[in-house]
Structure formats: structure tokens, C-alpha cells
Simulated scan of single mutants.
Amino acid sequence: MTAEPKIIDEVENVVVPEVVLLPVEDVAVPADTKEPEKKTFPRRGGDRDRGGRGRPTRGPRKDRDERRSEFAQKLIGIRRVARVMAGGRRFNFSAALVLGDKKGRVGVGLGKAADTALAIEKATRAAKRGMLTINLTKTRSISRNVEAKYCASIVEIRPSPGRGLVAGSSVRAVLELAGISDVTAKLLSRSKNPLNNARAAMEALKAVSKK
């Protein structure tokens, strides 16, 4: 019989070094691992109240909204128009509106663009450029009868104390946004074009507007 080899268990003789756990505060952090300090730069311009050249502070939101809503507008017509080009037809939108502050200032504008919002914006700018200032009486009426013609539209406007505003079509929108009351307006033509009727009313109001 062969003798079995002896297995020497040397695990018991192995010396395990002791591990000492240090608190986090005592551990030294290398200089390379520290976070770089954030640099603060001086503000450009400075405060306007302190004599700097900074941007002036904006006013309260309520005041800005009041400036925006100085004029009221009413859309009197919007339609899609087409232009025949070499490559085919190009479609745009045409918008007509009346703009006024109901205090004697009123204007009519027309705008065309590929988008309805842009067309309305162009019409608003056109109405502001052609705005009239009406001479109103103490009762917010006009002083005399006026009549005018624009293309095929003929409009007559006459004062009528105590009756209020009597008008129709786009002529009523022009008179309302101008702040005119106690008048009677009448269309003397058969034109159904709201833009021409509004412009005929504007031509009539030129006779009682400030030069």
C-alpha cells in the first residue's frame, strides 16, 4: 500500500494585518482632486440707478399691457387670394381691419401675407399709418353732415342727437372705434364690399377731422 501524502494546513500560520479605519475628516485629500474655485466676474454696465450704463428696468406688467391695448381692432374681412406665377398659383391671405382708440382716432388697413397672423399684423401697421383724428363735439358726435364716395361705395353720415349710433356694415365698426355716437350713417350705394364701405366712411370723416 502506498502512503497518503500529508497535507500541511498553513492557513493557521498566515498572519493577517489589521486594517485601521480612519474618519473621513482625518483622510488627506490630494491637491489635484480639489474642486476649482468658481471665478466671479463683475457685471457689465452696472445699475442705472447708481449712474451706470445698464439696461433700464422694465415697468410693471400692468403698465405694459395698457400701452399694448391702447387701440382696439375689429376684423372686417379676411380671404384667401391667389397670384398666378410661372410655376403655378401662389396663395396668400388678405386681411382688412379697423383700428381705433374710441377717443377720436381711427384708421383702416389692409395687409397681405402667406400667414393670417402676419397679414393682420401688416394691416395693423397700415391702419396706424393712415389714422385720422376726428373733431368730436361734447356729445361725442360730429358737427355737420358729411358724405363721400370711394370706388363704388357712397356713405352719408349725419348727426342725430339722442338716437345713439345707427349704422351697419363696416361703417359701424369705423364709427364705434372712433368713439362717435349720436350719428346716423347710410349707404347710398349697392356695394357689399366691406373694405370699400369702411374707406368711404373714412373719406367722409376727413371733412370733420383735424388737419
Rank of each mutant, 00 (worst) to 15 (best):
A152R: 10
A207V: 04
D49I: 07
K211T: 12
S191G: 06
R90S: 14
E66M: 14
A113V: 05
N145W: 00
M1P: 09
I154N: 09
K211D: 14
G100Y: 01
V98A: 03
V84D: 08
C151A: 14
E12V: 12
L187K: 14
K138R: 12
A117T: 14
E70T: 15
S189L: 09
G130Q: 10
K210N: 12
A86D: 12
S209R: 02
V166L: 15
R67G: 11
E10P: 00
V155M: 11
V171E: 05
L110T: 09
K211C: 00
T184A: 11
P23D: 15
A126Y: 07
T33D: 10
C151P: 00
G104D: 04
N193W: 09
S191P: 04
V166Q: 12
A123N: 08
G45W: 06
R105Q: 13
T40V: 15
D32H: 10
A207R: 09
L75H: 02
G104A: 07
N92H: 10
F91L: 14
G45C: 06
R53V: 11
A200Q: 06
M85K: 09
I157T: 05
R80D: 12
V108I: 10
A119D: 04
N193G: 10
V171F: 08
P161N: 02
R89Y: 05
L99G: 04
A3R: 14
I7A: 13
E176A: 08
L75P: 00
G179C: 08
N193S: 14
R144F: 04
R53H: 12
R158I: 01
I180G: 04
V27E: 11
R83S: 13
L188P: 09
F93D: 01
L99E: 03
E70N: 03
V171G: 04
L118W: 00
R172D: 06
A173P: 01
F41R: 12
S209L: 05
V15W: 04
V183A: 10
L177Q: 08
E147P: 00
A82F: 11
K102N: 08
R172T: 03
V81D: 07
V11H: 10
R64V: 14
K62A: 15
L205V: 08
V81G: 06
A126L: 04
R48L: 13
E37I: 11
D26V: 12
Q73F: 11
N145C: 01
I8W: 06
A96I: 00
V146D: 05
I180D: 03
L177S: 09
V81C: 05
R172G: 04
A198R: 08
R89W: 02
G179K: 06
A95G: 02
D49S: 15
R199A: 01
V81H: 07
L97V: 05
L205H: 06
G179W: 02
T133I: 09
F41T: 10
K102D: 01
M85Y: 01
V16R: 14
D9V: 08
R83H: 12
R48P: 12
S94P: 00
A113E: 11
K74M: 04
D65Q: 15
A152I: 03
I76Y: 06
D65P: 00
R129E: 15
T133W: 05
K74P: 00
G179L: 06
K34P: 00
R172H: 08
Y150E: 08
R190G: 15
R67N: 10
D63N: 11
R172W: 03
P161H: 05
L136C: 08
E37N: 07
V106Q: 02
K34D: 02
E4V: 11
E70Q: 13
L21D: 13
L22V: 15
G111F: 07
